[in-house]
Amino acid sequence: MDNIIVYASMTGTTELIARSIAEELARSGWHVTVKDAIDTFAEELLSYDCILIGSYTWGDGELADDIMCFHEELLAVPLSGKLAAAFGAGDSSYEQFGRAVNILEETLENQGCQVITPGLKVDGGSEEEIKAISYSFAKKIKRINEAI
């Protein structure tokens, strides 16, 4: 199964989540491509079976500028039959904690993906804690994928 992880990261937290998920999936022999959203065209997703997209939440619940162009392109790409999940970093002191994850999930569903698990929203923590949370999310994705 070919998998892609696309992310937008400002402080490095969402990139850490993306790379940690990829690391855990690769341990099981999964082929995983990790790309920054700025360097990715949405049509590239057509070549993958499982799509994971991550973004930090900007302001009071908006997508990050770093992923806006990719997201706009994504609205024109039909992804029926693809498996998907979303993740991202946020700040729980905001009313719309991690809303970018919700926006990405909704977009993936609207484009025909089967969102296989609720999105991962990370609210800070040490690098080790973030890695552990990300590894757990990846293991969940593996279990669900194997059950489908």
Rank of each mutant, 00 (worst) to 15 (best):
R19I: 00
H71P: 09
H71K: 06
I130L: 02
A89K: 11
D36M: 08
V122T: 10
S28T: 00
S93P: 11
S28R: 12
K131H: 11
Y48W: 06
Y7V: 11
D65V: 15
L79N: 11
I116F: 03
I67P: 03
A37C: 11
I4P: 09
N3C: 00
L108Y: 09
T117F: 09
L83N: 11
I133Q: 01
L52W: 09
I38M: 15
E15C: 01
A26V: 15
A18H: 02
C113L: 03
T117M: 00
A37Y: 09
A37N: 03
E72F: 04
F87R: 13
G61S: 09
E62I: 08
L52I: 12
D49A: 14
A22K: 05
K82G: 15
D60H: 05
L120A: 14
S9Y: 03
T33C: 06
E23A: 06
C50N: 01
D91F: 02
F87C: 08
Y48T: 11
A18V: 02
G119L: 08
I103H: 06
E72A: 08
Y135A: 00
G98F: 01
N102R: 07
A147R: 06
L52K: 06
Y135R: 06
K131R: 02
E24C: 04
G88P: 12
I148A: 14
P78R: 12
